Simulated scan of single mutants.
Amino acid sequence: MLKLYGLANCDSCRRARRTLEGRGLAVEMIDLRRLAERGELDDALLTRLAAERDWQELLNRRSSAWRQLDQASRDGIDRDRALTLMREQPTLIRRPLLDSGNAILIGAEVAHYGD
């Protein structure tokens, strides 16, 4: 089963889910915000994602959460700080994010899975 990480109220995530399910693929939607609220958005998951993809690809620099960070936090960001911020503020993770078991796809790449 494919794991689609995103936010319940994210239009791109809902579109990606519909597209994948429309291709007959089984998709488990995982809300990053709810995962964080339950304390399940842990370092192990983020480290695994960052091992598959560069942490800079995972970091959503277009989000309002990113713009609300102070300039010093944004300027001095490194991998460890980015992963900590993503754990604390899941809206900093680019979405949709698809874990196929073989690869991690981010954003527009998700729509092409299974083509």
Rank of each mutant, 00 (worst) to 15 (best):
Q56F: 03
A51S: 05
I77P: 07
G76R: 12
R79G: 01
A82L: 05
T84F: 12
D75M: 09
R81E: 02
L83W: 03
A72S: 09
L83D: 00
D70A: 06
Q56I: 03
R81W: 12
A65E: 12
D78G: 15
W66H: 03
D70K: 02
A72G: 04
L85R: 07
D75F: 12
W55C: 01
I77N: 05
D70W: 05
A72H: 09
R74N: 03
A72I: 08
Q71G: 14
T84V: 14
Q56E: 09
W66A: 04
L69E: 11
S63K: 03
Q68G: 10
A65S: 13
L85K: 11
W66E: 06
W55K: 02
Q68N: 15
E52M: 07
R53E: 00
D75I: 09
S64F: 14
Q71V: 12
G76F: 08
A72T: 06
R74L: 00
D80L: 14
D70H: 05
R61I: 07
Q68W: 13
E57Y: 02
S64E: 15
R61V: 10
D78C: 06
L58P: 10
N60G: 07
L58A: 11
R53C: 00
R61P: 04
W66G: 05
D78W: 08
Q68V: 06
W66C: 06
L58C: 09
Q71S: 14
R79W: 01
A50N: 03
Q56S: 02
L69K: 06
W55P: 00
L59Y: 07
R61H: 08
E52C: 08
D75T: 10
R79V: 01
L58F: 11
E52F: 04
R62S: 13
W55Y: 06
R61T: 11
A72L: 02
A72F: 08
R61D: 07
L69M: 11
W66Y: 13
R67P: 13
L58I: 15
D70Y: 03
L69H: 11
L59Q: 12
R81G: 08
G76D: 04
R74H: 03
R79M: 00
D80A: 14
Q56Y: 07
D54T: 10
L85V: 09
E52T: 09
S63P: 01
Q68R: 14
S63Y: 07
E57M: 01
E52K: 12
A50E: 00
D70Q: 01
Q71E: 15
I77M: 15
L69T: 07
D80S: 12
D80V: 13
L83V: 04
D70P: 01
